[in-house]
Design a protein around this nucleic acid. Structure first.
Lengths: 201, 201
DNA sequence: ATAATAAGAATGAATAACCATTCTTTTTTT
DNA sequence: AAAAAAAGAATGGTTATTCATTCTTATTAT
């Protein structure tokens, strides 16, 4: 049917809109119920479309999980790169970088992140997505964080970066499992630890 | 029926054996499949007993999840307290304490721990179990770790302990989600960060 | 000591709801 | 009118939980 380029573009746009509509609904459901207690029927209801129609845009439930994992980490990466780009001066750059993690540990977002991590333990495809963002995370840290740090013994660099990665994952866990946890206090503890890890030994 | 104390004791023992049998099977299943993809039928098969019989010892699947969460954290707590008790001298005590975390991040154990954390985000009963061990963890740190630390500004103590908690959760996440992660390297990073957090500012 | 009795332990089939996915039909767009 | 989009009923399983039943063990009566 499609002949004109405009029609094709319009069609593509609609497809993307529909995909986002499904992903938004799935995100909401997964956040509340987790991957494996959420039914396709529930997602369809929240997305306000029919069950079968979801399969027009995603091959199966697993594909939905993968796509959502990718979208989550893409958001995180974009944030870190934005922080890298427009920090006003070198001294406040580390704190600007740290402040970005408010997005990361948003109590509305964190449960799904943790669910992704847990799922990665048994779903190799999800593990691959996690592995990729992990690599990117380290790259960004090396490029934009290490130059701001004190003199670190070369043999310790990997361990210090690993500790920062651990801290960022730990925040997700804490904010999800402990409803009392205050995001600002977690960021404060994170800041303290990161500054320690970036200082000369 | 039961009158004699011996018979009663024997019965109790059998009950406990059976409960452990179920919990062991459930732990194995949950580890591989997660809470909500594991069926009671599967647990029964692994435990080598009938489906219906499980319900003699646990009210439902949820009770199984709770019991397992408790058992996991009880193991962790026992370990920390053992380390506290029989460390040879003060200087090596911190490292002895850190070394205990090898149990905690055992790749066979970590996935279930992470699953528990994730489940805590939506199951209030599990959240309560997590909250309790979290409190105990901090108590133990205050009692056995802080006396070994350098002079820490009083206002920073909470943040530093929080950072250690975050690190320990982060290790679980890392070891679960990243199949390449080396437990020894994670412990090394953990040690480096903890020593930094316990040193005088 | 042995048989009869009672009670707990264990089974596995029955139930009823729910699940992911596919297929057919209807509606909307071009 | 043709094609794509959307709907929702149909399919074939799987699920947690219950229940009627049988097997084992312990106590009592003989």
């Amino acid at each position: 049917m499609v002949r004109t380029p405009e029609a094709l573009a319009r069609r593509q746009q609609r497809t993307e809109r529909r995909q986002d509509q499904v992903l938004d609904a799935a995100e909401e459901c997964f956040r509340v119920e987790g991957f494996h207690r959420t039914s396709m029927a529930r997602i369809a209801a929240v997305a306000d479309m029919s069950v079968g129609h979801i399969y027009q845009y995603f091959a199966n439930k697993d594909a939905l999980i993968i796509a959502l994992s990718e979208r989550r980490f893409a958001g995180f990466e974009a944030l870190l790169m934005a922080a890298e780009r427009d920090a006003p001066d070198a001294t406040s750059q580390v704190d600007a970088w740290i402040a970005q993690f408010a997005w990361w540990i948003d109590p509305v977002r964190a449960p799904l992140t943790l669910e992704i991590m847990s799922e990665a333990g048994r779903n190799p495809k999800v593990a691959q997505v996690v592995e990729r963002i992990d690599r990117r995370f380290r790259e960004i840290m090396r490029r934009s964080l290490l130059p701001l740090a004190g003199a670190i013994p070369p043999g310790e660099i990997d361990d210090r970066l690993e500790a920062i990665v651990m801290l960022s994952h730990g925040m997700t866990s804490r904010i999800t499992a402990d409803p009392e946890a205050d995001p600002d206090r977690l960021i404060a503890a994170f800041r303290l630890a990161v500054h320690g890890l970036l200082a000369t030994a």
